[in-house]
Structures are given as C-alpha cells and as structure tokens.
C-alpha cells in the first residue's frame, strides 16, 4: 500500500454517529474518572497510532485544535498524514501550544507540567493528552478519588509516565489549571481529569 492509500483509508465509516458514540464514551469516562469504557470502532489508523486514540482524535480534533504528537508518532509520515487528512488539525510545534496531544509511549512523555495548563482566568485553555496504553486493568493499581467518583475507584494502566504520581500531585496543586488525560488501550478508554486525586495507598 502506498503512503497516500494508507492516509486516505481507515476513517470513520459513518462519521456522525461514530463521533457521537465515541464522544459519549469520552464524556462518561471524564465524568467518572478511572471507569473503563469499552470503545469499539471501525477506525484503522497507521501504526503506531492505536484505533481508540485515533477515534478520540477524529471525534474531538479539527482545524481549531493544534495537535502535538509524541516522538514515536511524529516520526511517522503516515500517522501525520492520516491525522491531517481526516481531521485537518494543524500540528503544534511546542507542547505548551497543544489543544490535544497524542502519545504512543507514555513512559517517554515530556513532563506533564510542560503542556498547556491554561491560565488562572481561562483554565480550559489546556491540553487534553491522549495516552496510548497497553492495558487499563493489569498495570500497577492506583486508587482514585475526587469529583465523579463515589468513594474511591481503582485503575491500573500501563505504561505510564515516569514518576507519574509525583507529577500528578504537582498537576493537582495547580488547580484549576492543569491537564486532562484520556488513556486509550486497543479497545477501551478511561479518563483522569485534573480534579482526580491519586491515593498514596497501592492496593
């Protein structure tokens, strides 16, 4: 397959309803942090972009949202071309300018506080980071609490950024500024909005 064929194929077959379905999964996941929501999608992006992260990007990104790609994805002309073709996103040169970011290997991601955190007046002008993970349930467990969580909830994504808990506590400290995470495995998502606190206790 030529690169232009790879780029033109694999978008939503039925964009209106597919985007609505994926959006509802993301909205429910953002409203109930740590809850795992299955996402079945017909999207077939070029590797190493996974189908779930690609579906979230097709649902939310467009010409108004600068997108930043982690190193593994930025290296691939097919991935850049595919995202350009299907969403018309401009690519952000700096992580601090990104409306969205997609990271194929969270273990290598830049420090989270380097992304756009918004301002005290406009905390919404901040990066939503889509992180591709291998699993949402069989990594090291984290206990979550905060808005959207009745009591506490456990999630176990892998891989995650280095010193993630320390970095996340730092993000929590900037509230209402901050970043919001969408964790995307091959067939499911879970979200960590900036309000979610990660407990010390590991189960």
């Amino acid at each position: 397959m030529t690169i232009s064929e790879k780029i033109a194929r694999g978008g939503f077959a039925d964009p209106v309803f597919a985007a609505q379905t994926v959006f509802r999964a993301v909205m429910d996941a953002m409203a109930r942090p740590g809850a795992v929501h299955g996402v079945s999608t017909d999207v077939r992006p070029p590797s190493p972009l996974n189908a779930t992260a690609a579906a979230v990007a097709l649902t939310l990104a467009d010409a108004d949202t600068p997108l930043w790609l982690g190193a593994e994805l930025a290296r691939s002309d097919a991935v850049r071309g595919w995202l350009s073709f299907h969403t018309a996103v401009p690519f952000a040169e700096f992580i601090s300018h990104a409306g969205f970011a997609i990271v194929a290997n969270p273990a290598n991601v830049q420090p989270l506080s380097g992304f756009a955190l918004g301002t005290q007046e406009y905390p919404d002008r901040s990066t939503t980071i889509i992180m591709q993970v291998e699993t949402l349930t069989s990594g090291a467990p984290m206990t979550l609490s905060g808005p959207g969580i009745k009591g506490s909830r456990t999630i176990a994504p892998h891989p995650m950024p280095g010193h993630f808990k320390t970095q996340w506590r730092d993000i929590n400290g900037h509230y209402p500024r901050g970043v919001d995470l969408v964790l995307a495995s091959e067939n499911a998502i879970a979200c960590l909005p900036r309000t979610t606190r990660i407990g010390e206790r590991e189960v």
């Binding site: 993301v26 953002m30 939310l60 409306g99 939503t128 909005p193 309000t195």
Partner: peptide, 9 residues
Amino acid sequence: RAILKGIAI
C-alpha cells in the same frame, strides 16, 4: 470540547 473541559473543571 467545551463540555469535556467543563466536566474537568
């Protein structure tokens, strides 16, 4: 996008 940021904040 506005709804998601609203939920996050």
